[in-house]
Design a protein around this nucleic acid. Structure first.
Lengths: 346, 346
DNA sequence: CTGAAAGCGCTTACAG
DNA sequence: CTGAAAGCGCTTACAG
């Protein structure tokens, strides 16, 4: 008899319509909702054995508190937002995807969920939407432009947010790698190795990250007392057409090595060189940033700055939730990078 | 005086602490909350001019209803979930990223937001998390295995969900391209063009989508009366190492054309052929699926089945919200594909 | 240590 | 056409 009874109840949560509430648990246990709530949250004075009983009951019936109701009561959503660039050439870089993964992981571990929204350089309506409707307790931005309107908006709103990337604005909490330093070291290493005539093909300069990498390149040359030849630096060189022009020009200029500010550019450069019958590193050395699997498994393996994008998402999520919880957070977190010297520059 | 007063109020929504509620609007207008609610939702009888006044007031103060409170009252969350594979070689394919983008767009347009979660082939705890905690009104799955535990779980829960992909289970709502047919047509076209000795390099067979593509390949050969040579078909050939073995073997076998079931495989194949000094299409023809930008801008451009992944996300999102709203939905939506015959097979 | 009651910001049946 | 009141499922100050 007792067994049957138990089975019946255990089936309760399997029935689609009948979601269990805190009241059901309270009733079952013959205590008040207050008590159940306290046992779950651990807040307020409450008897040890009572907690035990409540916990057991909750597990028995597989009760899950409604986080939406909890949110209403606390004026919180237990959601964090992640803004995904809808205008980037997303289709070619997995950066945002992997970063999002990192955020999801850490969020779940801290009992938060992740709401995604998209932003464009000149259109942040969808971002405003989730913020204005109170769908999230905070936001993560995954890139930064000069004069970034998303950053501006969130600052003005006063909502907690974290930037994956760098900003000159000290008031925004940032998580990033030191791209300037990384590029500087990479180029310095190449120079020290005797590689000369190093060119740079860089992406959109409106992205802070590309600026930083360029800076690093210039610094390395300066520090080594190498003359900077402006025509060996291609900025805003994102499209396949521009990259092709750049490569053709550089081939004529007796360039010895091309440093690319990201893997998408690098993939195109490698592809062009092969088409034209130039060998890497024999005829041209190549190095890149970010180090997607693609570069590592390339033949020859490509020298690159490796950054842990998932970790970037992890830390950004953690920082944001800290801020939401009122903990003070470091204003800028710099994560490590690795320089992988591989055959493409040897 | 009046102007100043107005400015003061307009500032209200800028102040961080003081979120406007429906009560504020009601008070301001001297009506009841009921009336304001009705004016916004358009439900129930209500005076035209009253609606007008309410709308104006709402806009003036930039009032945004809290969707979390709305959700509690309606037992809805106004969120849909998207499950992101955390174990896929995400870093190499932008498929999920672009699909997610498509879902986000359509969701926002239908006043829903998107919560992401990750799933692994053998671990759907994070999926369970958002479902059990009532964070979403429905789910979108972005891939399907044979014996998919995520599908199984959602079915058993009875929560609305849509699969981007195909399933033999007629009770699940599906959005997909006809991969079998697409592959069949592609291979048939090649055969009709006089291309012979067509090999296939296919990814993980546990993915339904890879099975379908393989089927299409076999069908095309059968229909044309071409003998199928089993050693020209490589299944479960996902890793760079396996792909390399396959390509080397096929080169010895006088293969004329390699069809790849996805772009990641294709990129690796192209790269290998170049390294070994084989020219495409001269020494070997190559065709692929999905048609990322990478293939189109390749030199030579690569023949491929083009599918609109963003559209896939769009339709999946729309279908899901329809189901949530109680509209009956078609059980299977088949989207178009395009066959791009390009130089790599000519 | 425990509970009754008010409140979070909406919606909606019921009564006018 | 409009409003008072109850309710969605939680939390928490207040009282015991």
């Amino acid at each position: 008899m007792q067994v049957q009874n138990q089975e019946e109840k255990e089936n309760k949560d399997l029935l689609s319509g009948s979601k269990l509430t805190i009241a059901d648990i309270a009733e079952e246990l013959g205590v008040s909702k207050t008590t159940v709530s306290r046992a779950i949250s651990g807040k307020g004075r409450i008897g040890k054995d009572t907690v035990q009983r409540v916990i057991e009951c909750i597990e028995k019936y597989n009760y899950k508190p409604s986080s939406i109701a909890k949110g209403l009561a606390n004026s919180k959503t237990y959601n964090i937002g992640v803004a995904f660039p809808a205008d980037a050439n997303l289709s070619s870089t997995p950066f945002f995807q992997v970063c999002l993964l990192g955020v999801c992981e850490v969020a779940a571990a801290m009992d938060y969920d992740v709401v995604v929204t998209t932003v464009k350089e000149t259109d942040i309506n969808l971002l405003k939407r989730i913020v204005d409707h109170n769908k999230v307790d905070g936001m993560i931005l995954t890139r930064n432009f000069t004069n970034d309107i998303a950053t501006e908006y969130l600052k003005q709103k006063g909502i907690p947010f974290v930037l994956v990337g760098s900003s000159e604005d000290d008031t925004v909490v940032q998580v990033d790698n030191n791209h300037r330093e990384a590029c500087e070291k990479l180029v310095s290493l190449l120079l020290a190795d005797g590689v000369g005539r190093i060119a740079l093909i860089a992406g959109d300069k409106k992205h802070i990250v590309n600026r930083s990498r360029c800076e690093g390149y210039y610094n390395a040359l300066k520090n080594r007392g190498v003359d900077i030849e402006q025509d060996m630096v291609f900025s805003d060189c994102d499209s396949p057409v521009f990259i092709e022009q750049a490569v053709r020009y550089l081939l004529k200029k007796q360039t010895e090595c091309i440093v690319c500010t990201d893997d998408v550019i690098c993939a195109k450069v490698l592809s062009l060189l092969r088409e034209e019958g130039y060998s890497v590193p024999g005829d041209m050395k190549v190095a890149s940033f970010y180090d997607s699997v693609h570069l590592e498994t390339n033949n020859p393996p490509v020298t690159a700055i490796g950054i842990d994008v998932e970790e970037l998402g992890n830390v950004a999520g953690k920082r944001l939730i800290e801020i939401i919880n009122g903990d003070i957070s470091t204003h800028k977190t710099i994560l490590d990078y690795e320089i992988h010297l591989r055959r493409s520059t040897q």
